[in-house]
Nucleic acid binder design. Structure first.
Lengths: 224, 224
DNA sequence: CGAAGGCTTGATCTCGGTCAAGGCAGGTGG
DNA sequence: CCACCTGCCTTGACCGAGATCAAGCCTTCG
């Protein structure tokens, strides 16, 4: 199980295989969304925690100059909606068709944590872990080269979405989404991918599915 | 009181004025550093939590191409060193002369949290809050324009370091540090500041001290 | 069938990185 | 005390990576 926030994605440290039980399991309600639907909007009250079950979503803010910044992608297992204040500061929208989420009452969760230090510890670790991820992301954004960012993104996706047995990585989001995630122009993302394909680092099964041929090269590009 | 991590800065929500007591107060040990000293290095074991009392520090990673990315600046009140794993992934170095820190045993803190849900909740909120800050920072880094980033940085500093009564903002760090924080070249930072000064948005008392003349314009530049 | 959205490629322009130089302050040693 | 050095900051000139503009292809959907 994993946790995130409207303002960030928290990844749950893997549960011990025979962990006694998950007190959160019981109290969520399921809902599913079509592609492009808004799950919660930018200035909505943050009364719920969500956990993405299947599909994919993007957490993004609108910038006043018309551009859009995608702060995080949410993948199956991610939990989000945790927030300090009462308001969200990012909108969350489904990316893939048939995206399903579990929704939890925030109040209920908080009092649950109050009485269950074990669970509280797990959530704390989730938060710390998520911070590590955001930090990596910041370092990625700090990179000057467009190609480096794209390589870093591919490695992140390959790592997060558990790769198929044959090494196929599926990108549930569009090139536009990737561009806004990496703070690049779509054209630049496209060109970078083309470059990587041309240099035999990756191959495409179709536009949204690729295989990493030369993992070493990918890491070398976004070295560190 | 405020908290951060080797991998992030956590800002403590303001304590209620007459809060009963702070269980963490008792168990820290004080140490002070000269400018440029290493407080903890990149792959050191993360056995302590730290809280910056006075001065300033930078949290940074070395990138293999020789560049340096500053992940966060630590200011008085910030707490850092919280970390999931056993290892740091960033070095922390003092920036200002006479930087002092309190150091806490990580083990001790964790068991303290285990037995004190109230404190645990506070730390959790610290983590959530810090995530909000990192998110803002990511949005800042996502901005294309150099001038926007610098404006955002100035607003952040004005907000974090409590401004003097007369509106003077002190930058404890060098232009090089600012550059590595914003992922820009030093020259670009310098030029941006010059531009802002030329357009009467800010004035300088000296290189490290400035006053925000036109707050509105600053916000307009990094709109949103 | 047409329209719309997603993706790629080409051409051009611009912002910011890089290189180079010089000013200024503080520290050190003669 | 001055001379020198070093680190920090600023400014100018140039160049290149990536944004922007434009066009065309493909798939999907009504």
């Amino acid at each position: 199980m994993q946790v995130a926030s409207i303002s960030t994605t928290y990844r749950m440290p893997r549960m011990p295989p025979d962990s006694p039980y998950d007190p959160m399991e019981s109290c969520g309600t399921l809902r599913s969304y079509a592609a492009g639907e808004t799950i919660c909007s930018q200035d909505e009250a943050a009364d719920y925690w969500y956990r993405l079950v299947s599909g994919a979503a993007r957490k993004c803010t609108q910038i006043s100059d018309g551009r859009r910044q995608i702060v995080d992608f949410l993948l199956p297992g991610d939990l989000f909606g945790l927030h300090v204040g009462a308001k969200h500061d990012c909108a969350v929208e489904s990316v893939a068709p048939d995206t399903t989420l579990l929704r939890y009452q925030r109040q209920q969760m908080e009092s649950l944590l109050e009485s269950d230090p074990q669970l509280a510890r797990r959530v704390r670790e989730i938060a710390f872990a998520s911070i590590d991820r955001m930090q990596s992301r910041m370092i990625l954004l700090g990179r000057s080269r467009a190609l480096e960012r794209v390589c870093g993104f591919l490695l992140e996706m390959a790592h997060r979405a558990q790769v198929e047995r044959d090494g196929t990585v599926t990108l549930p989001m569009s090139r536009y989404d990737i561009a806004d995630y990496l703070a690049l122009a779509v054209e630049t993302v496209s060109r970078s991918l083309t470059t990587l394909r041309a240099s035999q680092v990756i191959t495409f099964l179709d536009t949204r599915q690729l295989r990493i041929v030369n993992h070493r090269a990918l890491e070398a590009h976004c070295c560190n």
